[in-house]
């Protein structure tokens, strides 16, 4: 079923909408959630919460593209759950991914005053510009690692690469990003 047809079902308040959504995007949403929570049961629950969230938001929303919208909802719910559980569990892969980004942050000059610091939106735009300059595979690798928070090991599997090659490629992308952000004069 096409995305627009699924959305129409939501607008008609038909429960079939959830069935179709689950059939079409369930595994993708579980993967996003599992990448963060590292627990199948928790991921399943989060995905169910996400279905509920979608049910509540559509209508009035008409998300396009639907897949990206579902990823965002699932990611946010999973991150909330992770924060809640953080005292009990640790997701080492995700921590590592955030550490990698923090290393870049650490290398950027600090702004003299809070007003001088780049806003989140400006920084997002700069990162988007940087990503557009990468080849497609590198761009996807970056988005999978730092947006979807997928571990290097799983990335190797998904991208048909050796783990070492994934690590090296990410290292090079980060290095380029660091240089790019410095050149752009990003301060935080």
């Amino acid at each position: 079923m096409e995305d627009q047809e699924i959305i129409e079902l939501f607008f008609q308040r038909s429960e079939q909408a959830i069935v179709e959504l689950s059939y079409q995007y369930g595994s993708m949403m579980r993967r996003v959630s599992f990448g963060i929570l590292q627990d199948f049961e928790d991921a399943e629950e989060c995905v169910n919460d996400a279905y509920l969230g979608v049910w509540n938001n559509i209508p009035p929303e008409r998300p396009n593209p639907l897949a990206a919208y579902l990823c965002r909802i699932t990611k946010n719910l999973s991150l909330n759950r992770l924060r809640y559980q953080q005292a009990k569990k640790r997701n080492l892969s995700m921590e590592r991914s955030l550490e990698e980004l923090e290393e870049i942050e650490g290398s950027l000059p600090a702004a003299g005053t809070p007003e001088e610091a780049w806003s989140e939106k400006e920084l997002t735009k700069a990162i988007e510009k940087f990503l557009m300059g990468l080849d497609q595979k590198s761009r996807i690798l970056f988005v999978k690692r730092y947006w979807f928070l997928i571990s290097e090991e799983d990335l190797a599997d998904e991208m048909d690469m050796r783990r070492n090659a994934v690590a090296v490629k990410l290292f090079r992308i980060r290095k380029k990003l660091k240089e790019y952000l410095r050149k752009e004069g990003v301060t935080i």
């Binding site: 993708m28 593209p65 897949a67 990206a68 919208y69 990823c71 965002r72 990611k75 955030l98 980004l101 923090e102 870049i104 942050e105 989140e120 939106k121 920084l123 997002t124 990162i127 988007e128 990503l131 497609q136 761009r139 996807i140 988005v143 999978k144 730092y146 947006w147 979807f148």
Partner: peptide, 17 residues
């Protein structure tokens, strides 16, 4: 930086999907 990446345009996520 992770927050800024969170805000990436949908087209980047779609490309990956």
């Amino acid at each position: 930086l992770s927050d800024a990446i969170d805000g990436l345009d949908d087209s980047f996520l779609t490309e990956s999907l």
